[in-house]
């Protein structure tokens, strides 16, 4: 990045004021791990967000509030009943990058291969944006466009609210890659709720094999109310695949991206179902 100056605000208000004053010249910075992907050479002023105390993870009544500058390692090391994001965190790039990258930075600008939007979509996370007032946005809306477009000058993504996994619920996550530290070719996350041996609710999200991370509503509706099982999963997935556009990344074909998704969505459904079955009172 072509930084011509930097500022390290100590409070959220200072940070917002700085960004508001700088307008398009201001660039919020936290982990700085994605800068190598930004080719923008326009001069910017860096506004470091890491002194604002936004790095906490707190358990609340029905879930967790993850501060925007919590690092992936923070999420990896965090443990509490119903917390599942450690499963995503531990498969994220490499240890030094996990130590540096923040949840906010990982989702405010989405790349096709971004890991984090996928589980957040499946868990129906809520994104907290602090502007002149604080607003909360659902993950489907948040990821429907490049998320930074939601942010007006002076707005900051300050937290992610993630529901806890409760009794009768399961979470499945697969990141398909060549090596442990590779970019994803296909990321799948499934949240599934069982009631009376049927699927009461399910959310299926996918990324990397599609141009942007997304939910798979046709698969979800086909499975809602159904009895879970390998055949049901396979049928629903096969029938629902066409609703997405498939795009192979890093040298794989679009066909294969689609095929990988079909396999891994079933795998993630199976994993979520297995967990939900075991996740009893």
């Amino acid at each position: 990045m072509n930084y011509i100056d930097f500022t390290i605000p100590q409070t959220l208000t200072e940070a917002r004021d700085a960004l508001k004053a700088l307008g398009p010249e201001g660039m919020p910075v936290a982990g700085s791990t994605l800068h190598v992907f930004l080719r923008d050479e326009a001069p910017k002023v860096a506004v470091d967000l890491r002194q604002l105390g936004l790095n906490r993870i707190d358990a609340e009544a029905d879930g967790f509030v993850v501060g925007a500058t919590a690092t992936v390692t923070d999420m990896d090391e965090y443990a509490a009943p119903g917390w599942v994001l450690d499963r995503v965190a531990c498969e994220f790039v490499t240890q030094p990058i996990r130590n540096m990258a923040t949840i906010g930075g990982s989702i405010v600008r989405v790349f096709p291969w971004s890991d984090w939007p996928v589980p957040l979509l499946a868990l129906d996370a809520q994104l907290v944006i602090t502007g002149d007032d604080e607003r909360t946005m659902g993950s489907s809306e948040f990821f429907a466009v490049q998320p930074f477009h939601h942010l007006h000058p002076g707005d900051l993504l300050t937290a992610v609210q993630v529901p806890a996994l409760r009794t009768g619920e399961g979470f499945g996550y697969f990141k398909e890659r060549r090596t442990s530290t590779d970019f994803s070719r296909c990321t799948v996350a499934v949240w599934l709720q069982l009631a009376q041996h049927k699927i009461a609710a399910v959310r299926v999200a996918i990324g990397a094999a599609t141009p942007m991370p997304r939910r798979m509503p046709a698969i979800e509706s086909a499975l809602t109310g159904a009895r879970p099982g390998p055949d049901a999963f396979t049928q629903a997935v096969q029938a629902g695949l066409d609703e997405a556009r498939w795009k192979g990344l890093h040298g794989i074909s679009d066909d294969y991206a689609r095929h990988l998704a079909s396999v891994r969505i079933v795998d993630a459904l199976t994993a979520a179902w297995t967990e939900a079955k075991g996740n009893t009172e």
Partner: peptide, 10 residues
């Protein structure tokens, strides 16, 4: 952390 992508001001 990786010093090659961390800015000195950080």
């Amino acid at each position: 952390v990786n010093a090659c992508i961390l800015y000195a001001f950080q």
